[in-house]
Design a protein around this nucleic acid. Structure first.
Lengths: 229, 229
DNA sequence: CGATTCCTTGACTGACCTCAAGTGCCGTGG
DNA sequence: CCACGGCACTTGAGGTCAGTCAAGGAATCG
């Protein structure tokens, strides 16, 4: 019953807005679910029947063409909301980038609860507005930025989103939840180009990449410059 | 007082959700305003203090780099909502593409009214979700599509958004509210590339372009093919 | 310790951009 | 009504950046 009470994202997800009895109502419909890295939660073109919250892990939203080109449209971290409430089929897939835990509802269940919960809708609105801001920032990147700028922007964005702390010298280290191919899909580039830009940033001393998925930002200001700010 | 009662978008804008007395309350804060083509309503980086509805005309949201590259992030038609409620400075400009009429509120006024109006927030949420869908569709275009595909997609999207009707042969004619430069900024291309793709589509018989801003879609299926669907 | 997978690097190609010169449209004024 | 000028668009030639194809190297797993 009170799976919600112990939920890791209880304080930050949209559910935070609900009173205890409403939580209870919602939790009756919710299913906690584990997804393994690489597993697909929703298929492109499915009549979008699932919505939910990310509890743990990282997932991506993506779309692809008939001929196999893939673009990542969004990235969901713990306490982020995924899926499309209020009836539209979204041509997007949701795939886990790491092992993940999500809390899902059928869209109809969620819609019904949301309709009568202004605070819930308010939270969801705020979150959607933030998603929109982020999507537009990314449109700008995809439309106007060069390959180096894209990679540099991505690394800075990652550092912020993962909340990676700076040490006393301003050096920031963190682990990416992405492989190169996945980075390429976010940035609208190819894996080779991403790789080349990373070596370029490395040889110019702005970052280091001690292991495949580890990134160290050595010179944040320099990297911001390279990102086109 | 009841400027709202005569409003052209009364039935379709988010205000549609409000009861008469709430409308009255909101209308006390609203300012109807004319904008001439090319005029800027909000400057990039302004502490976003304005929100509102488009009553007539077409406007664009855009962002630009220090060195002058411009990307259009969204297009607002009559009954669309513009601006960013709930306190964030959005690094975006709003510019009129045609002469336009808008109904504006200060963000704080709007926020205050919205907080106590669940139906209003619900409408706004739906609209924001649609904007997000559209932004993501455009991310895909910018990240993965070729120049011809982008232009073809744009023309199809325009025909739909402007509600251009097909005649008995399936031919669709309409006038763009965009010049070539503006199209280029939407599509993340240069004006020359846009121009070349249009000639390409023209010579392949999919469209015609009898005057600068007039487009005729001769073969919708063919154009969809060219758009990469 | 081998096998697989992921990443890097190189050589080449090609799509789009840049720069530059037309061409046609449209309003203005004769 | 036509001549003119300005501006938006088109077209061309050449360059550049990212993509493609292909091979080699490094990490991770059994």
């Amino acid at each position: 019953m009170d799976a919600c009470a112990q939920c890791a994202v209880r304080e930050s997800a949209i559910c935070h807005s609900l009173t205890d009895d409403k939580i209870a109502e919602l939790s009756r419909h919710g299913h906690r679910r584990s997804v393994r890295r690489g597993q697909t939660l929703v298929w492109e073109g499915d009549e979008s029947l699932l919505v939910g919250n990310v509890i743990e892990g990282v997932l991506k939203l993506s779309a692809s063409t008939w001929d196999g080109r893939d673009q990542t449209l969004g990235i969901a971290y713990p306490s982020d909301f995924i899926g499309r409430p209020f009836g539209t089929k979204s041509r997007q897939s949701v795939v886990a980038l790491t092992d993940a835990e999500v809390c899902t509802f059928t869209r109809s269940d969620f819609d019904a609860v949301a309709q009568n919960n202004p605070p819930l809708e308010h939270k969801l609105l705020q979150r959607t507005l933030m998603d929109l801001d982020h999507a537009r920032q990314w449109m700008f990147l995809l439309g106007q930025k060069s390959a180096v700028e894209r990679v540099a922007t991505f690394l800075l964005d990652m550092a912020d989103r993962l909340g990676a702390p700076a040490d006393e010298d301003g050096v920031i280290a963190f682990d990416l939840p992405f492989g190169r191919q996945e980075m390429a899909e976010v940035l609208g580039l190819t894996i080779e180009t991403v790789s080349r830009q990373i070596t370029k940033l490395r040889t110019s001393g702005l970052i280091d990449a001690p292991s495949r998925r580890t990134v160290v930002i050595l010179d944040r200001d320099g990297l911001e410059e390279a990102a086109g700010y």
